[in-house]
Amino acid sequence: MSILGGGIFKGMAVTLRNFLGSYTNKKERLPTIDYSWRADGALPQGIGDYPKEKGEQLSDTTTVTEYSRNFPMLLHDGGEPMDTVRCVACQICERECPPQCIYIEKDYDENGKYIKRPAVFDIDVSVCMSCQICVEVCPFDAIVMNSQFELSTPDRFGGLLMRRDDLLKSNDYYHKIHPEEAAARDAKIAAEKAAKEAKKKAAAEKARAAAEKKATEAAKEDAK
């Protein structure tokens, strides 16, 4: 050590540099306040002064990043939500949910016949830990993550229990908040559908061929 307390003076130089730098070089020194350094610029205006400046700037479709996830929502393909809802109430997500915050009841018509949609679909968002496992295990791409974060409520019980109708969101909305993910998912569904159709066609073909064969055989039998 060359001078007395040299290390201390070095440290003081660093803090002085930071003190001055916080006025001159905001990008480097005040990254938590100055968001301009974020290359994607995904942060909406006004979020830096969040509770005071919200209003219209923070709409329902505010999203922080492409993959930002808060709580799940149920997708429907437009029109009357319950007619086009993708969920068939298979309850896989209910079983796989790690904190077990999903509750599903199947829907039955008046004859007691199971119609492929949920009668009750509750998510207790005070328990939900936004892990996205339900999204991944869903075979029907019916449940995806919403990025809405303004859910604070003075009601401890009802306010944080999201019912089926709160959870239902259209696919268009999904495209708005997570465009890339939604496009990929749509493509996947289309591909699956196409594959399924092809399979169905093939199966139908096969069945027809088999039926024809059978018919011919039966005819042969008859002929005998």
Partner: peptide, 14 residues
């Protein structure tokens, strides 16, 4: 670098 300058030679920390 800055962090080390601030901490690693500081007599009190040493």
């Amino acid at each position: 670098d800055e962090y080390e300058q601030l901490l690693c030679e500081n007599e009190i920390i040493l």
